[in-house]
């Protein structure tokens, strides 16, 4: 299979990534290599098998829907690249 430049750009856009013009081919070739290898899953004898999403026993885990206050707002906000008062600051949306 071959991955086109358009496909790489489309996927990168879905993932919120910019790919530089001179990197597109490299990413396309890497992806092609890896997908060609990964394609062997299509030869696996799995026709009648269910899917598995995790290694645990399949069961629901419930807990009470209780609010627990995280006291240390300052610690939370200290990692914000930009803030004002006790809020995260982002560019204008509307």
């Amino acid at each position: 299979m071959k991955i086109s430049k358009e496909e790489i750009l489309h996927i990168a856009n879905l993932a919120d990534l910019n790919i530089k013009e001179d990197e597109i081919e490299k990413y396309a070739l890497n992806l092609q290599d890896i997908l060609n290898f990964a394609n062997i899953v299509n030869n696996a004898p799995v026709d009648d098998l269910d899917i598995t999403i995790g290694a645990n026993e399949k069961k629901n885990v419930f807990r009470k829907d209780e609010i627990k206050v995280f006291e240390d707002n300052e610690a939370l906000l200290q990692n914000a690249p930009s803030k004002e008062q006790n809020m995260f600051k982002i560019p204008k949306v509307l």
Partner: peptide
């Protein structure tokens, strides 16, 4: 890896890769 992951989850490829991989996981 983000690009590979986004690709295998994207419309048109989900069944061929991601779903298949989850079946192989059962195997």
């Amino acid at each position: 890896r983000i690009i590979l992951g986004t690709y295998v989850l994207s419309s048109g490829y989900y069944d061929a890769y991601y779903k298949k991989a989850q079946q192989v996981r059962t195997l």
